[in-house]
Structure formats: structure tokens, C-alpha cells
Design a protein around this nucleic acid. Sequence first.
RNA 1: GCCGAAGUGGUGGAAUUGGUAGACACGAGGGACUCAAAAUCCCUUUUCCAUUGGAAGUGCGGGUUCGAUUCCCGCCUUCGGCACCA
Length: 851
Amino acid sequence: MKYNPADIETKWQKIWEDKKLFKVEKDESKEKFYCLEMFPYPSGKIHMGHVRNYAIGDVISRYKFMQGLNVLHPMGWDAFGLPAENAAIENSTHPAVWTKSNISYMKEQLKQLGLSYDWDRDIATCDPEYYRWEQLIFIKMFEKGLIYKKKSHLNWCDDCNTVLANEQVEEGACWRCGQDVAIKELDGWYLKITEYADELLEYANDKLPGWPNKVLTMQKNWIGKSYGAEINFQIKDTDEKINVFTTRPDTLFGATFMSVAPEHPIVKTLLAGTDKEAEGTAFVDSILKEDKINRMDDDKEKRGFFTGKYVTNPVTGNDMPIYIANFVLMDYGTGAVMAVPAHDQRDFEFAKKYGCDLKIVIQPKEELSLETMVEAYTGAGTLVNSGQFDGTDNDSAKKSIVEFLDNEGLGKSTINYRLRDWQISRQRYWGSPIPFINCDKCGSVPVPEAELPVKLPDVDFNPDMRGNPLDKVESFKNTTCPKCGGAATRETDTMDTFMESSWYFMRYTSPHCDTAPFDKDKANYWMNVDQYIGGIEHAILHLLYSRFYTKVLRDLGYIDIDEPFNRLLTQGMVCKETYKCPEHGWLYPEESVDGKCSKCNSDVAVGRVEKMSKSKRNVVDPNKLIQKYGADTARLFILFASPPERELEWSDSGVEGSFRFLNRVWRLIQNNIELFNSELPAPVEDELSKELLFHTNVAVKKVTEDIDRYQLNTAVAAMMEFVNNLYAIEAKMGDEHKALFRDSILSLMKLIAPFTPHAAEELFEMAGFEGLISRSSWPEFDEKHTQKDEITIAVQVNGKLRGQIEIARDLDKETIFEIALANENVVKHTEGKDIFKKIYVPNKLINFVVK
RNA sequence: GCCGAAGUGGUGGAAUUGGUAGACACGAGGGACUCAAAAUCCCUUUUCCAUUGGAAGUGCGGGUUCGAUUCCCGCCUUCGGCACCA
């Protein structure tokens, strides 16, 4: 029978589904393994990135199943988000309709890949049964003081009437309507992730050994803990002070002016009623009008405005002019900076432009002078011009100056984070409603728990819609205050969709629990996720939020763990070269035929290898691939082509190779299928038997170890090598070897089972086995068969390979040297020379050092 | 600019702890089978010189070592992250 993936794949997918093969329950008697891949946004159809992600997770899950573990392997849908809402507006359909149809289509696609999910645990985050718990958690967090509301400056599109995330601003304009983006001060809800900054950092430092360093480093940088001081500066002729944060208190004597952020509240006070007011306000407005992206541009010119006011340097007593400066960020530190132009590059540039004083307070070995300085000196040195601190090295001066300030009540040592609290308000429809009611008398009041979930109301979507749909649904918006009973309005913003993905992995442990977000017992049994797999692009946002959420849920008493994910594998992107036609722009791969555009026959320009994306059309559709070769081939190729962490360059001919391999496996086992139903003579202990045992045990060992260390590409290579060896042995063997050969091809079936499960099931069945190979045991290897008695070792002279000798394993050293020295070619290189050192690496090589 | 990762045949990649560089696969060339094709199978395939064999070779330049793709120093390139963070 020819290998025909189309028939066998649907057959086995149905059997697995009918038998609910991958359905699991908590079972204390078994060791558990929780394998999780990042759930997808239901955008319409799956792409190669999904295939790769889920193929990796499926191999690991199936392998652990076969090793006898109780494996939880769930899948679901990150179902809230803007694309659904945009599609709804465009097509006048409800986002729920669009989302649901996408989910059912994509679910079918995933099933076609033969993935081992427990579909009974399927969840969609847009389901009120999911987001009701998110709303409950939100209220619990509020009660614990982890949530607050504040005004802040955000990207705002007037036309769409909504806040935009930074990444939704394209060259200063709204990505959807092209309107210029403004900065607007808006109310928003914040989660106090900064309260957990230290713990998040601490675990990232050394308590997450299963995470790639790369991701931990990115998170550490994102949190950005820095030690420094807060120093108070008195505004001259007033009672008010301006606080600054600095990491360089040692340079305080060199502070000659002050810069404050345009958004800083003090700005209005400073300008009020002065002759600078009009000009200053205009300056501030001109900066705030720029969108955030532009304002943070590379090499942005430094612009400042002198307010006409001064602060007093607390240690020198000198007047320091106060400038409003475009490069000072309101949301880092205190929004005000003491400027030390001699020792900070930004302040240096600013001072040169606006003619501010420079003062050197740190001298390195090679003396600085103001006349020759062309840039700020930021290195170490000895303090000068710094009163009683002169002569101390700048590092210890950091401490002593802060101590001095502390004693005088002028400042204190402090720690600052780059991490900011998480703003979760979105002026959108397709997200979880924020369960709060705004009352004129009582302020923001949580919706009583009994009234949860706050469900999204129905809205008629149409292309003429603008703004936040919820805000216009009067029946939703108008309500009464739960506290005072007076008229009140419901919060019409919805939550950031990262809120859903921050705890979905816990919901999977009891997805239908209707009394709590999840069953605590079950969650404690299944968590942590033992293996999490997903794209590197989530290194910060999703993975940091999930860690934060886990700690919060712990502190709220929902679960007893500190971190959600034990091991993390970040898979690389799937890439392909791009094709561009001078007439028709980007082309799909199939539109470029022999270097010509299939539409106009112009020469096609082959671009660089890039991440597969719809916009550049350098995509390969998993559907077409599965139709042509089957899911097993698709899975095998995507795992073989590259190690999981690295990016994968798509190659059609590589796919052919994987298909060929599967056919070779198929034929090898087919040709010998009758062995499974035959009485065979007892095996003999000859060379060929030894060889067979050797190759089989080596293959099992290598595949096992490679899966354990995520090297799925070399695991596939080991299976290929095994098959090549089996063909060679098949050609030589007699009846007395067939019993062993039968064992070997059974091992082969099991080894390929996690990778190409359909083909493995079919072969297993044809061999006459009862039950499913997916539920059979993983093959074991015997270390003694992975070693040969006769081995080849390399003979080097002065580190250069001069020969190879066959010896018995573990032969004594001196005998090996004798044999090696007798080797003809070795003699040539040692003759007439002194051998003054002989090195022997057991069973590997020897090296003669001669002169 | 800062941080991180990577750089190996024509191509994707392998070499797990410092020990025979190029496993496995793709592509290419040659051959077998076939009326022919497809499929399959076999051989060759780092470069250079050559007759057994030799020389060079893992981005570049140094170093440590009997021995370096692997460790150290300096540089180049590519990719990723962060970026006026006080």
C-alpha cells in the first residue's frame, strides 16, 4: 500500500477525537506535565508561525504522554481585539459573529494538523463566562489597592474618538483614518505593576533557570531598576519646591540649571501671571502637539524655554534657571532633572545651545578643562569644586552627599524604575467592560459581584461609526450607583486585551468552573506550566504581564505559586524571500514563475528573506501544504529545517525531502510488515545483530536526549540516519536477524510517533498491534548497546590527523600507542623525531607531540 | 549609543564538557532501472595541489593549549531588543 497521507490523516484525527484521547483530569497518582503554546488571536486562518509553534508543542506533549506523564495540553482563543471590531465596522457585522466564525474555521485547521489538544478545555476570552472572572479579579485588585484611576497624556485621534497605542500611530497620524494624532490628557485605569517591580526583577535575576537569558535580560532592562537620590530644590522667592531624581548625586555641585518636562504641573505655576506666560504656553503646546513617537525620535533637536524663574542649588546656594525642555520625560523619575552640563551629554548639548554655565566637579586622571571639552565627561574621577567633598572619589561621594542631604532634610536616597504602571483603559467595544460605575457623589464604585458579568450590549455596527460604541448605548451607560442609589453612568472603556492573556493558562486547569476564576485545587495541581512555547515577540508585554498577574492572584489567595512558567521556549520566526514585480508590486510565491511575473511576464525582483507577512505576500499557506503532502510532512519539515529557537527559512525543496523521508519509512516498514505476524527464529549474536542493536539503541538515545534539550531538528536527523542504517542492514540480513529487525522497526515507529503521529498510528495498526501508538510507551535504550566493542580512534601528530586505527574498546593506553606508532603514515611524521608527549583521550584519539 | 544573539560548504544546518569540522537534509554532477518519464536505488560533492598523500579552512587579527567552531583579547558584519531613562 502506498503512503497516502490524505486518507490516513483524517482517519486518525477522527479516531483520536472520538476516543477523546487527549482528555485529561487531575490525578495525584501520576506525575503531571503542563505543556502550553501561546493561544492565537482568531484572525481568520492559521499561518506558518502557528504551525511551527504548535508542532513543537505537540512533539513535546506526545513524547511526555508516551513517557507515562499526565499531560495537560490545551488550546483556546485570545478572542478580543481591534481587528474584529474593524471588520465589524467595515462589514456591518457584529464582532462576535466574525470572531466565532474565525474560531470554528481555525479550529478545523488545527485539527487537520493532528495536534493533541484536550478540546474539552477550549476557551474563548470573549465569552462572558471567561471575562466575568476577569472583572471579578479586577474588583479584587481594586479592593487590594492595586488599581487606580488617573489622568495622563495619551495619543488621541479626534476623528476616531479614541486613544491609540504608540504602535497604532504611523508617522504622526492615525493608522486607521490618517488624522493627525494629538496628545490628550485623559482619565484611565492603571494596574500597579510597579508595586511588583522588585519581585519581578528578583525572579528574573536567578529564579527562572528554564527561561532563555535573552528574555530575562529584556525584562530586566524593561523594569530598569536604578539607584539614586531624590533631591529637593527650592524655587526662588516662593515656598514651592521641585523634586528631581538623579543617579548622579555626586555631581550635585555641578548642577547649573534645571530642566522640567512640558507636562510637569509646576510649569503652569511658574508661568502664571508672568510676561513669559503666553510664549511659554505656546512652547509647551507645540511640544505636546507632537505625537509621542516623533518626540522620541533619534537625534531629536533639544529645545528649551527659559521660564524666567530660578531654583537654588541646595549645596552651592547658586541660582539655577528653570527651563522647560522637550527631552525631559514626565513619566520617568519626577519629571524634572537637575542639569549637570559638564557630566551629562544631554545637558551638555542643551547648555551649549542656550548658553548655560558649565562647571566641572569630577576630574579624571587626565584633567578636563572647560575650554577643551567637546562632550560631557561621564566617567569616574575625583570630586573638585564640591566644597567639603573635594578629593573624595565620585563613587563614595554618591553615598556621602546623599547622607548629607538626608541630614539636612534636602533629599534622600531612592530607587527608581523604568517600568510604569499598566494603563488598561481602551475606548473600544470589543473587550471586557471595566466593571465600574461613576457616580457624581460616590466617585468610581465597583459593580457588585452578584451583578457580574457586565456584559457587552448589542450594537449595530456600520461603516459610518465613529468613536467608542459603548459610550453611545444609553441603556448600557445609564445606571444607578450601587452605593447611594442615585443616577450614575457606567464605565464605557474596555480592558486592554493583554488582561485576558495574563491568566488564561490558569483557567485551562478548570475551564468550566462557575464559582471562581478557576478551581484552586486543580490549579495548584496543574500549575506551573512546565513548558511554555511561543514567539519571541512576546518577550516583554505578555510574559511580563502574566508573571505580574500570577503574583497578584497569589496575593489575592487564588493560587499558591510565584511564577507561571517553568520552562520557556521562544521559537524563531518563519521567513521567506520576497518577490516584487515592477508592475504589480509584491507577489505571492506562486505568482513568480521562473523569475517572471505570472500576470505580466516582467522580471521579478527577488528581495531579502523576511518574516512571512500578508503585506509582503511572502507567505506559504499551510492549507495548500497539507493538501499536497499531508500534515505529517508539514510538521516534520518545519521541525527539521532549523532548531526551534532560530528563525526558519522556508524552502519548498526541503519539504520534498521530508516527504521523501516519510515515504522511505513507510516502505521500509511495509516491506517488513509480515514480520509482526510471523514466527521468527531466535536471534543470533553475530556482528550484524550487534550492529542492529547498536544503531537502534543509539537512535533511541539520541532522539530522547534531543527532545529533552529541544533540539528537534537533530532528533529528526537521528531518525533519518537510523532509517538509512536500517535499509543497509535489511539488504544484508538473514532470517536469524529478523526478530531483532522487527524490534528495531517497532522502535522506529515509536520514535516518529510524536513527530508524524498519523503515519505512525497507521503503521502500528497495520503491524497488527492493539490500541494506539499515541498511548504506547516510549522506547528505552540500553547504554551497553550504544557502544561498539571495536572502535576507531584518531591518531594525531602535533595536533594534526595522520591516521585512524581500529582497536578494542578500553584497550590499555600503552598498547594503543604501540599500535598507533606502527601506522605507516604516522611513522612518516614521527620518524627521526623526539616524541616528548603522548596524549590519550579514552576511546577518542591520541596525539603525539614531536620535535 | 547601550544590551543581547549570531557569523561554519552552492543552501538549511551538525559537532551536547576544549578532542577526527561539515552529521542529517536540500541542491548539483555522474550512473543504474525504464521504450521513455516519474518514482526509486547507487556513487561523487569544503577549497587548492597531487600518484600513495599533502596544504589551507568555521567572519577578520592576535593569544592560551599537545589540541580551539568551542576559552580569552581586539575588530568587522548581520539580526533582535531598548533608546534623550536624568
